[in-house]
């Protein structure tokens, strides 16, 4: 049941992206081109999504638990803003403005087997793996330097 819910959610999500125009990089770039021939239409996608979800969060607050799952896996709303978050968003935005695809549309468009999408999605996977490798090295370096500090002390 859980997997069916996730599958249907993914399917409806993809239809929404397609009907909304988010699978057209030219349209996405037109939306981001505020100083050029700005096409504001895609405001509607985020607006529609936010409107439904604003209601869903209120309903969610009244549920004793999720309907098909025993535990909740939602991040704390009030986690602090940090430099990592902002830097990540800066980098993501540059990538979005370069290619016109955010992650969802890139994955959905894989079905076309068009080379630009295959290249984009494969590079996105490389970026995810690169992040995890860098993070692992950074954690190891942090552990090593705290060991060194203990040794020095």
């Amino acid at each position: 049941m859980k997997f069916a819910v996730a599958f249907v959610s993914g399917l409806v999500f993809a239809l929404g992206l397609g009907i909304g125009g988010m699978l057209l990089p030219q349209k996405v770039l037109g939306f981001l081109d505020v100083l050029g021939a700005w096409d504001p239409a895609l405001v509607g996608v985020m607006g529609g999504g936010i409107a439904v979800m604003a209601v869903a969060w209120r309903v969610f607050a009244r549920l004793p638990r999720p309907l098909c799952e025993s535990r909740v896996c939602v991040p704390d709303r009030n986690r602090p803003v940090d430099a990592r978050l902002v830097l990540g968003a800066v980098i993501f935005g540059v990538g979005w403005g370069l290619g016109g695809y955010c992650p969802g549309p890139s994955i959905v468009s894989l079905v076309t087997l068009a080379p630009p999408v295959l290249v984009h999605a494969a590079s996105m996977a490389v970026g995810v793996v690169a992040y995890h490798l860098v993070w692992r090295v950074a954690e190891a370096a942090k552990a090593a330097s705290s060991d060194a500090a203990v040794a020095d002390g």
Binding site: S9, L11, G16, L17, V45, V52, P66, V74
Partner: peptide
């Protein structure tokens, strides 16, 4: 705005399904 809004409502429904059904964020 009609197409984008309809698309956005569907995106919202899909995200609501993840949240209410599975207690998860539909963060792709």
């Amino acid at each position: 705005f009609v197409g984008p809004l309809v698309g956005g409502l569907l995106v919202g429904v899909a995200s609501a399904l993840m949240l209410l059904g599975l207690g998860r964020i539909a963060g792709i």
